[in-house]
Amino acid sequence: MASVVVAVLLVAAAVNALPPLNSRQSITALTTSQIDHFTPYTHYASAGYCTNTQTLAWNCGTNCNANPNFKPVASGGNGDSVQYWFVGYDPNLNTVIVSHQGTNPSEILPLITDADFFLTTLDSTLFPGISSGIEVHNGFGNAQASTATDVLAAVKSAMSAHGTTSVTMVGHSLGAAITLLDSVYLPLWLPAGTTFQTICYGLPRVGNQAFANYVDAHVHLTHINNEEDPIPICPGMFLGFVHPAGEVHIEDSGEWAACPGQDNPSTQCIVGDVPEIFDGTESNHDGPYNGVEMGC
């Protein structure tokens, strides 16, 4: 018996000595074609900064010109109390696009670092059947709720008008946080058989462990971080916030690294590369993301 106990203790010690699972998983570099695949969506996220009038007319300069065949369906927001958003159809990608406006680093940092936010349950009217154990940043939740029903109506209209069952949600910064919440919200209200993907840039942490686990189980997510951007490491994990999986980190070398798991601690990933907010560089937040800077 003593030898069995000793063996168990030795195994336990060996396991405890291993680095966290996330850091043991393989970090792989994206190919040029994989990186280029994101570019149309990056322009859609950047166009989220344009006014609702510009995006409804699809007349917003470089970002609109990058996807010239886009068919806008609806837009909204005022760029102040309500972030701009737009919905339309891309015939080349055969998907409905949903995009939300972000904000600049100096405006979003107080929202995600000040003490006037808290984790709260999702609105049961908007998110029926979602566990009360799933909690999100109250400011992000309120921002998503302010446009949720209008966005849903626009998506339904776009799907019907263009005969597609595909929906792609994009956003940068605060827009990425709203987009991630849309990624939980919209599937609850759209027909079975609809396919979804979510591509976020400079995504702050949005919710707790239960939220991250739900996203991993139900959302096809990629969230892309640029170099030493401090926004994705906020709010801090010590406050109970956790990133879902799906991180791609653009390193200083220009390599795009796919980082498996939640909040991967490797120095090739954002948590390891920017361990503290003061180690970050605000100017990295807007890009470039494969040559695209965020903003209209």
Rank of each mutant, 00 (worst) to 15 (best):
W58P: 15
A115D: 10
N59I: 13
N59S: 14
D90N: 02
Q54Y: 04
S99K: 03
N94I: 08
L111K: 02
H100C: 07
V73H: 06
G79M: 04
L109K: 10
G102D: 07
F70C: 12
N78M: 07
A66W: 06
A66K: 07
F70M: 13
P68V: 11
W85D: 13
F117W: 13
Y84G: 12
A57P: 00
T103N: 13
P110H: 05
D114S: 14
L111A: 14
G76E: 11
C64F: 06
V73I: 15
G61F: 14
S81Y: 03
I108R: 00
S106C: 03
V98Y: 01
G77E: 07
G77S: 11
D114P: 00
N69D: 15
Q101I: 08
N67E: 10
K71S: 12
G102Q: 09
N92T: 12
Y89V: 03
L56T: 14
F86V: 09
T62P: 13
V82M: 06
D90P: 00
Q54R: 10
L56I: 12
L93R: 06
S106Y: 01
S81E: 10
L56P: 06
L109I: 09
V98A: 08
P72H: 15
T55H: 12
V87L: 04
G88R: 04
T103M: 07
T62W: 05
F118Y: 06
S99I: 03
N63Q: 10
G77K: 10
V98F: 01
S75P: 00
P91K: 04
F86T: 08
N59G: 12
S106A: 11
Q101W: 00
I97N: 02
D114I: 07
Q101H: 03
T113Y: 00
G102M: 12
V98S: 05
N65A: 15
T53P: 08
N63S: 10
S106R: 01
D114Y: 01
C60G: 14
N65V: 12
T113G: 04
N59T: 11
P91S: 07
P91C: 03
C60S: 13
T95K: 01
N67V: 10
F86W: 15
A115N: 09
G79E: 05
Y84K: 06
P105E: 03
K71F: 05
G102N: 09
Q54W: 00
E107I: 11
T103V: 05
P110R: 05
N78Q: 01
T55V: 13
T103P: 10
P110L: 06
S99Q: 08
K71H: 06
Q83E: 07
N94S: 09
G88S: 12
G79P: 02
F118G: 06
